[in-house]
Amino acid sequence: MIDEEVRAVVLAIVVLGGALAVSQAITAGRVVEPFSALGTLGPNMKIGDYPKEVLAGEPFRLYLYVENHEGKAMYYRVLEKVGDNSTIVNETVPADLPVLASYEVILAHGGNATVPADVAIGTPMQGAKLIFELWAVGPDGSPYYTGRWNHLWINVTSPP
């Protein structure tokens, strides 16, 4: 009688342990939630200290931080665009604006890179929306928008 109970307990432990081990063995190394990250850093390579006012045509230094957690190597392109407060950009729609510059980097899974970006906005404008969009090269070789973007509001004044 007692032997049967012990056997049942052992069976339960074996089944539970087996199920856990099998699931771990099968899902080992898989990325559950793949994602890519884009960050814009100021001239001192920190979040913040962003320029609020710049001279038209005068280049200023920013840094773009890109991180890959997609579970595979990725070829990223960060596109630089300038719009205003009427420019629409969100997770699904990239800004419908000309590309001023592009920064490219290839990252292995888990890798990150900080890329210097020398930005120059040619025309004076109040409330310029400086946009950085993260694009990636898809399996067919064509670029697609990852849905990640950053933007900064900058006043661009004409040089004295």
Binding site: V6, V10, L11, G17
Partner: peptide, 10 residues
């Protein structure tokens, strides 16, 4: 291991 445990562990 599961089968052996079931058979011999008790």
């Amino acid at each position: 291991v599961g089968a052996l445990s079931y058979l011999y562990l008790p």
